[in-house]
C-alpha cells in the first residue's frame, strides 16, 4: 500500500461527516424535545425540563411497557437461538449436501419478507375461524375456537412466534455454515472415544463456536428491538396492554391517543440511553 495518498481521508471523511450529522442531529433533538412540552396539535411549547421523565416513572402503562419489552426481548432471543442451534445441528447431522442447500434456501425466505407482510401472513393464519394455523386445533377439537392473538396470556407468544419464524430459521442456516467451517479432526477424535452424536455437539462443536454464537445472539438482541411492525399490524399492543412494548406505547402516546410528542420523546430517549449503554458494554465484552 502506498504510504502517502489522499485516498483514506477523501474516502472516509465525507461519509463520516454525513453519518455524524444524520445521527447526531435527531439524537440531540430527541433530548431537546423530551425537555419541552410539545404537542402535535399546536406549535407553541415551553421548557419543562425533567417533568416528562418524572411523570414516566409514575405512569403504570410505561412500567408495563418496560416489562413487556423485556419479556419480548428475552422470549424472542432465547427462542431464536434454541431454534437456530437445534435446526442447524439437525441439518448438519442428517441432511445430505443437496438437501442442505434446499433447506438453506427455504429457511432464508421468511427473514426476507417485510415484517408487515410476515405479520399479515400470520394474522390470517391465526384467525380463530378461518386461519390455516388454527385449523388443526379446530379439526382435533371438533370446532372449538382458539384465538391466540386476543388472549392476553398468549398474544405476546403468538407475535413472538412470527419473529422466531423469521429469525430462528435464518440463523439455523448460519449455524449450519458455522458448523461446516469447523475442522473435522476434533469430531473424529470424539467419535473414537465413543461419544454420542449429541455429546459431540454439546461438548465439542458448540463450545468451539462459542464466540460466533455469542455474536449472533448479539445481532438478534439488536434486531429484537425492532418489534414495532409486527405488533402494530398484529395486535396494536392489545389485547389491553398485553403486547404494548415501549416503541408501541411511545407511538400511541405521540401519535394516536394524545399527540404528546414530548412525552413520547422522553420515552424514546430513555430507551435510547438504555440500549446504547447495554449494547456498548456487551459489544466490548464480546470483542474482549
Amino acid at each position: 500500500m502506498p504510504r502517502r495518498s489522499s485516498l483514506p481521508v477523501a474516502f472516509v471523511a465525507p461519509t463520516l461527516v454525513i453519518l455524524l450529522i444524520l445521527s447526531m442531529v435527531p439524537t440531540l433533538y430527541a433530548i431537546v424535545i423530551a425537555l419541552q412540552n410539545r404537542e402535535l396539535s399546536s406549535t407553541a411549547y415551553s421548557w419543562v425540563w425533567f417533568s416528562n421523565f418524572v411523570d414516566l416513572f409514575s405512569d403504570r402503562r410505561f412500567v408495563n411497557a418496560v416489562w413487556v419489552s423485556v419479556k419480548w426481548e428475552v422470549v424472542t432471543v432465547v427462542a431464536t437461538m434454541v431454534v437456530a442451534i437445534g435446526l442447524g445441528v439437525l441439518m448438519f447431522e442428517v441432511a445430505a449436501p443437496r438437501l442442505r442447500n434446499l433447506y438453506c434456501l427455504l429457511f432464508i425466505v421468511p427473514v426476507l419478507l417485510p415484517r408487515v407482510s410476515a405479520a399479515f401472513v400470520w394474522k390470517f393464519a391465526y384467525h380463530p375461524l378461518y386461519g390455516i394455523a388454527t385449523y388443526p386445533y379446530r379439526l382435533l377439537t371438533g370446532g372449538l375456537i382458539f384465538d391466540p392473538l386476543s388472549k392476553p396470556s398468549t398474544a405476546l407468544f403468538a407475535v413472538a412466534s412470527v419473529d422466531v419464524w423469521q429469525w430462528g430459521l435464518f440463523f439455523a442456516v448460519i449455524v449450519l455454515k458455522l458448523l461446516e467451517t469447523l475442522p473435522p479432526q476434533p469430531i473424529e477424535a470424539a467419535l473414537l472415544d465413543h461419544a454420542k452424536r449429541w455429546q459431540i455437539h454439546a461438548y465439542v462443536t458448540l463450545p468451539m463456536l462459542k464466540a460466533p454464537l455469542i455474536s449472533l445472539m448479539f445481532v438478534k438482541m439488536i434486531e429484537s428491538l425492532r418489534s414495532f411492525d409486527l405488533i402494530y399490524v398484529m395486535t396494536r399492543g392489545g389485547p389491553g396492554v398485553a403486547t404494548e412494548t415501549l416503541d408501541m406505547y411511545a407511538f400511541s402516546q405521540g401519535f394516536i391517543e394524545s399527540g404528546k410528542v414530548s412525552y413520547a420523546s422522553a420515552m424514546a430517549v430513555l430507551m435510547m440511553i438504555a440500549t446504547v449503554i447495554t449494547f456498548t458494554m456487551l459489544w466490548k465484552r464480546v470483542q474482549a
Binding site: L19, M267, A268
Partner: peptide
C-alpha cells in the same frame, strides 16, 4: 452503534425537524 438507536428515538425528532 447506529443500529442500536431505537427507530422511534430517531423518527420522533426527525418528524419535528
Amino acid at each position: 452503534s447506529l443500529r442500536f438507536l431505537p427507530p422511534v428515538a430517531v423518527a420522533i425528532p426527525l418528524m419535528v425537524i
